[in-house]
């Protein structure tokens, strides 16, 4: 009889997904604030803050993208039909 595959329990995968989604939500809120602050600053005539705001927003988007890839993989793993065999 072959030894059962050592997989993390599904609840751990779901916890990881919930954590990643929460982090994405927090990053999104920061991005919304950053966009409104950059717009306010631009309209007030301070154009020097536009570049750092765009860079930070891009970094946060990349982190969100990485977390999405992570969620996608873990979700596929949790839903795999042969996982509990």
């Amino acid at each position: 009889m072959p030894a059962p595959t050592q997989l993390p329990p599904p609840t751990r995968g779901l916890t990881a997904i919930a954590g990643a989604m929460s982090l994405i939500a927090v990053l999104l809120i920061v991005q919304v604030w950053l966009l409104s602050a950059a717009l306010e600053s631009f309209l007030a005539g301070h154009r020097e803050s536009a570049l750092p705001a765009a860079v930070f927003s891009g970094v946060m988007f990349l982190i969100c993208l990485g977390l999405y890839v992570f969620v996608d993989r873990v979700d596929q793993e949790v839903r795999r039909p042969d996982r509990d065999r």
């Binding site: 990643a20 989604m21 994405i24 939500a25 990053l27 999104l28 991005q31 919304v32 950053l34 966009l35 950059a38 717009l39 631009f42 154009r47 536009a50 570049l51 705001a53 765009a54 927003s57 891009g58 946060m60 988007f61 969100c64 993208l65 977390l67 999405y68 969620v71 996608d72």
Partner: peptide, 22 residues
């Protein structure tokens, strides 16, 4: 999650638009 990430992309595009305008 895909929807949230697309929204994040929208925020980034908005910031880039402000930078290009500046």
């Amino acid at each position: 999650t895909k929807f949230l990430v697309l929204t994040s992309l929208g925020m980034f595009v908005g910031n880039v638009w402000i930078f290009i305008r500046s």
